[in-house]
Amino acid sequence: MRATENKPLVLGYGSLMSSDSRRRFSNIEHQGLLVQVAGYARAWITRSLEEQQTYVGALPDVQGCLNAQLIATDIDPALADREKDYQFEQVPVTQISTHLPTQSAHALQNFLGEKRVYICRSLASYPAEANYPIHRSYVDTCMAGCLEAGGEEAAKTFVEQTGHWNQHLIDDRHEPQYPRAAKVSPAHRDIIDTILGALL
């Protein structure tokens, strides 16, 4: 706790859910805690002009909800560059919940009461298209993070709580085009394919 007690908390709901991706590309060593965030909707809406891809983004939505990992980290230049297509927006801790037992959930709320918690809000909203597709290496990175934090249920929730899936989904697994792709095991890829095949 001492190493993280003075750090702000970031709600990672995309590639930051992967411990491998955030460690190798953003020097974030801390483990995340799986939570639910009310008041935001996640969808494939964040267009990277530089990387010519579409990523998940989040926008305020009173009926929205998304799963994420609560990660202790400084919002340093490396993280700011990674999230350059977003803005860090503070989230009321009352919008954050967990499936922990009641006693632990109360402890989390007490802990959050003294913290600044941020989510990466999309700067703009554009659905994926041919010139800005969704890459499987990015999907794998997000869903592998869900699998490691909450198993298949968390990975299914990611798909169910993400809008604007469309036909512009490119299989780049053999030559990943996402620049912060996680190392994903064949076993996890098989699970991801089964979940996507059942839900999409």
Rank of each mutant, 00 (worst) to 15 (best):
G150E: 03
G150L: 07
G150I: 09
G151V: 08
G151D: 00
E152C: 08
E152V: 05
E152H: 03
E152L: 06
E153V: 08
E153Q: 04
E153R: 05
A154D: 10
A154I: 06
A154Q: 09
A154R: 05
A154K: 13
A155S: 05
A155R: 02
A155F: 12
A155C: 14
A155N: 09
A155W: 06
K156F: 09
K156D: 09
K156I: 06
T157G: 12
T157H: 12
T157A: 15
T157Q: 15
T157Y: 13
T157L: 14
F158L: 05
F158T: 05
F158I: 01
F158K: 08
V159C: 10
V159F: 06
V159A: 03
E160F: 08
E160H: 10
Q161R: 07
Q161F: 10
T162N: 00
T162Q: 00
T162A: 02
T162F: 02
T162R: 02
G163F: 15
G163A: 09
G163E: 07
G163H: 09
G163N: 08
H164N: 12
H164W: 14
H164T: 04
H164A: 10
H164D: 15
H164R: 13
H164I: 05
H164F: 15
W165E: 00
W165F: 09
W165H: 01
W165L: 03
W165A: 03
W165K: 00
W165D: 00
W165I: 00
N166K: 10
N166D: 06
N166Y: 13
N166R: 03
N166P: 14
N166V: 00
Q167D: 14
Q167V: 11
Q167F: 15
H168G: 07
H168A: 09
H168Y: 14
L169S: 01
L169G: 00
L169C: 07
L169Y: 04
L169I: 03
L169W: 08
L169M: 08
L169H: 04
I170E: 11
I170Y: 14
I170F: 12
I170A: 14
D171Y: 08
D171W: 10
D171L: 10
D171V: 05
D172P: 06
D172W: 06
D172E: 01
D172C: 02
D172V: 02
D172T: 01
R173W: 11
R173T: 12
R173Q: 07
R173A: 09
R173S: 08
H174P: 07
H174F: 11
H174T: 11
E175M: 14
E175S: 14
E175L: 15
E175A: 15
E175D: 12
E175N: 14
E175T: 15
E175Y: 14
P176N: 03
P176I: 04
P176Y: 05
P176K: 01
P176T: 02
P176D: 05
P176R: 01
Q177C: 14
Q177A: 12
Q177V: 11
Q177S: 15
Q177Y: 07
Y178Q: 02
Y178A: 04
Y178W: 11
Y178P: 06
Y178K: 03
Y178I: 01
Y178V: 05
Y178N: 02
P179C: 04
P179K: 02
P179V: 03
P179E: 02
P179W: 01
R180L: 03
R180H: 11
R180M: 10
A181C: 15
A181I: 13
A181W: 11
A181H: 13
A181V: 13
A181G: 13
A181D: 11
A181Y: 13
A181K: 10
